[in-house]
């Protein structure tokens, strides 16, 4: 008999501002069973009158005991994300259950090269993969599409990322002068310049808003990547 995925109490230990509108919550979750990079959790908030609501958030950190990190982008008219980023304080408790999802995951013992393609906050589960790589031999390439430099998550850490992980920043609206690429949406030329050729048989993970994921997956298959090796996770325009 499979046991029900239990709701656990998580306590906010600290929070890091990633951008003016996104925060990483560092949570202590006693008894956390561990997770694979790419998985998510369901968060449940309950009001004093008993009303409760749930949302899913990708896990940002590599599995590390009882510690869980979620990076939350504030959705302007959202019901849950503004609470998590603006109201929740260290010591406050929320409920969550997980880890959830057995498809959009990278298993650190797998060997093909890895191609990560993230749009906006779609970087979060991909960052968990980068962080879980550790000393593995598997070479990673990360294509990170973002509107402008002010939207960059994990800036310092990506700057210092170790050998074996190549990061390309694809700015869509405003590119810094040294970007080496004019601002614009992800194109086939980017996949050729910064990705892996299809012949190398990479495991591909694409995460971001629906339009971004649709477009990236179409470009990848047109280039000859095996659709069966392209795993996608889409954030709808709603949520929050």
């Amino acid at each position: 008999m499979i046991k029900r995925l239990a709701w656990r109490v998580a306590t906010l230990e600290s929070a890091r501002q990633e951008t003016p509108t996104a925060k990483t919550l560092v949570l202590d979750v006693p008894g956390w069973p561990g997770h694979l990079p790419g998985q998510h959790v369901d968060v449940r908030l309950t009001a004093p009158d008993g009303y409760s609501t749930q949302r899913s958030y990708s896990i940002a950190n590599a599995s590390a005991g009882d510690r869980l990190e979620l990076t939350v982008q504030t959705v302007d008219d959202g019901e849950v994300s503004p609470y998590l980023t603006d109201v929740l304080e260290p010591g406050d408790q929320i409920e969550l259950r997980g880890p959830v999802g057995g498809w959009f995951v990278w298993r650190p013992h797998s060997s093909p090269p890895v191609l990560l393609i993230g749009g906006g906050s779609g970087i979060v589960p991909l960052m968990a993969m980068v962080r879980s790589r550790g000393k593995a031999d598997t070479p990673f390439r990360l294509l990170y599409s973002l509107r402008d430099p002010g939207q960059l998550f994990y800036a310092d850490e990506l700057e210092k990322v170790k050998a074996g992980v190549e990061v390309a920043y694809l700015y869509t609206r405003i590119a810094p002068p040294d970007a080496g690429r004019a601002a614009g949406r992800l194109q086939t030329a980017d996949l050729i310049a910064y990705g892996w050729p299809p012949e190398t048989g990479p495991d591909v993970f694409v995460c971001g808003p629906t339009g971004f994921v649709e477009s990236a997956a179409d470009l990848l298959t047109a280039l000859g990547h095996d659709p069966a090796k392209i795993r996608t996770e889409r954030f709808g325009p709603t949520g929050g």
Binding site: W7, V9, R44, L45, T46, A47, P48, G50, Y51, S52, T53, Q54, E79, Y83, V87, D92, Q93, I94, E95, G236, T238
Partner: peptide, 27 residues
């Protein structure tokens, strides 16, 4: 009922019998 989230009130809402547990409405 789970633990109460401090200072969480949620959106103004009417109980909606058409909404299954844990779901929220989108348009």
């Amino acid at each position: 009922m789970g633990i109460i989230s401090r200072a969480f009130h949620g959106r103004p809402r009417e109980p909606d019998a058409k909404l299954p547990p844990g779901q929220y409405l989108v348009h």
